[in-house]
């Protein structure tokens, strides 16, 4: 006979599972305490936040402030675009070395991938600090930080994109005696182009987001205005900066999404 009573709603966890849950819970509480979590501060923060808002509102929209911040924003975008474009260009040869089975042997692939992993592991703001030391304060240090960040990102994903292309066209060219580099240039790269475009546009979005805070460490761009605004308790100007950053970043994301469908959508 089949047993028709409904099964239990919950399966009883085994002792090991139970201990696992318990350990997880302990871990979360340990982290919360490490993060200085305090219910007291949570309770008192809304009034303080409201206080900040009341002092920051309305944002400073006077002509000369908007003009100054506007130019800083232009510089920020210049840093982002210059760094991202150079980074994308440099990523291509790096990706050729990182892609398995293309032109370089496994040893080179692995070494390149490890270096790229290291580059990605270091946060962009840390790269900016390093370049400030290397080339001095200013936007050039910021551009270099964006550049290397872009190489870490695009180098890896361009390589993955090329590995994922269909092998047929490449094989057909190899069969006619073409060299590896010629095969890559004529079959692999054209096939990976839509993916490259998508990845590069994403890198640009990322660069714009990063470039807005590089100023915090003196590497150029609008970030410095944010820092100064808070340091001088000039909250209305700081709020203007925050809003400006939000508008530009959202704008760039929209634009890049539009470009993506325009370029790739039509080419597929």
């Amino acid at each position: 006979m089949t047993d028709l009573t409904a099964p239990a709603r919950f399966e009883r966890p085994s002792a090991v599972t139970f201990l696992g849950y318990l350990a997880g819970l302990v871990l979360v509480f340990w982290c919360l305490s490490g993060a200085g979590f305090s219910m007291d501060k949570v309770m008192t923060s809304p009034p303080r936040f409201a206080d900040f808002l009341s002092r920051a509102f309305p944002p400073n929209l006077s002509g000369d402030v908007l003009g100054r911040l506007g130019w800083k924003m232009v510089e920020t975008l210049q840093i982002a675009v210059a760094g991202a474009v150079l980074g994308v260009i440099l990523s291509l040869p790096v990706a050729l070395l990182a892609a398995r089975g293309l032109i370089a042997g496994p040893w080179v692939n692995q070494t390149t991938r490890i270096v790229l992993g290291f580059i990605r592991a270091v946060p962009d703001i840390a790269w900016a600090l390093v370049f400030v030391v290397a080339v001095g304060l200013g936007p050039f240090a910021g551009m270099l930080a964006i550049l290397i960040d872009t190489v870490g990102f695009c180098g890896r994903f361009f390589a993955d994109d090329m590995e994922a292309t269909e092998k047929g066209p490449a094989e057909s060219l190899t069969a006619t005696g073409a060299r590896r580099l010629d095969v890559v240039a004529c079959a692999t790269i054209p096939a990976a182009m839509p993916a490259f475009v998508s990845t590069a546009l994403y890198a640009l979005e990322k660069a714009v987001r990063s470039s807005t805070i590089l100023g915090l460490v003196g590497a150029g761009g609008i970030g410095i205005e944010l820092k100064v605004g808070f340091d001088l308790f000039d909250y209305p100007t700081a709020l203007t900066v925050i809003l400006m950053i939000a508008v530009v970043v959202i704008g760039i994301e929209q634009l890049s999404g539009h470009a993506r469908t325009k370029i790739i959508g039509e080419q597929r």
């Binding site: 094989e171 069969a175 005696g177 004529c186 079959a187 054209p190």
Partner: peptide, 13 residues
């Protein structure tokens, strides 16, 4: 030598 394969394998772009 020349090769023609099942899928034409020409480069679309």
């Amino acid at each position: 030598v020349g090769l023609v394969s099942q899928k034409h394998n020409i480069v679309p772009r």
